[in-house]
């Protein structure tokens, strides 16, 4: 029976970085743009080295995202509600960008990262993500690599077992009945993370999400970043 401890770190490190930067006035040439919903980090946060994998691209790491804007969303394919909603929202965002060449936005690379590599193979994940838009990338890796990336970005998630209508005490998850080991749900952050072309975390789009708002916010951030 395998159990994965939660990567509970939330966004506190990021908020701390943001607060310190604001206090110190360390702007370093990036004037924080006004946004409608995105939380923009005054100083982009370094995403610690990560090693994920994609079925055809091979290794997916920091070098894979450098040189372009990316949107990271964390979830899993057994996700009953939130992931399909968010992936659909981002597919609508992509369609709006494609239909409106006059938009100033540089289309971001959408990356769907599985927090559940125990059940999501890279192949299944890419098929799942690609259903929503052919440009979407689905990646995952060994659990320790997924944990490293999620912690580095302040992404919270936890595995939860429900038995007889009740949540099993995390401390007693070892008591999960045989045969139900794979029945867990994953509660996770529904935020979408904007990564700049240097591979740094630049902004966090907290839910709820609207495609047109995200497009306008990303455009504002990109314009300020240039």
């Amino acid at each position: 029976m395998k159990h994965q401890s939660s990567a509970r770190s939330f966004s506190f490190p990021l908020l701390l970085i943001a607060s310190i930067s604001l206090l110190a006035g360390c702007d370093q040439g990036f004037k924080i743009p006004e946004t409608e919903s995105a939380f923009v980090l005054p100083e982009a946060a370094v995403v610690e080295g990560f090693q994920l994998s994609h079925p055809t691209l091979g290794e997916f790491n920091l070098d894979s995202i450098k040189g372009k804007w990316s949107l990271f969303f964390f979830g899993y394919t057994r996700c009953p509600d939130v992931c399909p909603t968010e992936l659909f929202m981002m597919s609508e965002m992509m369609k709006q960008i494609e239909k409106n060449p006059a938009l100033e936005i540089q289309a971001p690379q959408v990356v769907f990262i599985s927090l559940d590599p125990q059940r999501d193979t890279p192949e299944a994940l890419q098929q799942y993500a690609g259903f929503y838009h052919p440009s979407f990338i689905g990646v995952t890796g060994v659990q320790s690599a997924v944990d490293q990336l999620s912690k580095s970005m302040g992404v919270y998630y936890e595995r939860v077992y429900h038995l007889n209508g009740k949540i099993l005490d995390p401390a007693s998850q070892k008591d999960v009945p045989e045969g139900l080991e794979d029945s867990y749900l994953v509660n996770h952050s529904a935020s979408i993370f904007l990564i700049n072309p240097r591979g740094e975390l630049q902004a966090i789009h907290r839910p709820p999400h609207q495609p047109d708002v995200i497009i306008r916010d990303i455009t504002s951030i990109q314009n300020a970043w240039r």
Binding site: G165, N187, A190, P207
Partner: peptide, 17 residues
């Protein structure tokens, strides 16, 4: 039967009877 609930930015899925 499920119900999605959101706390902070975390979406939680609760099976319902």
């Amino acid at each position: 039967m499920h119900r999605t609930m959101m706390t902070d930015d975390v979406m939680m899925m609760m099976p319902q009877e």
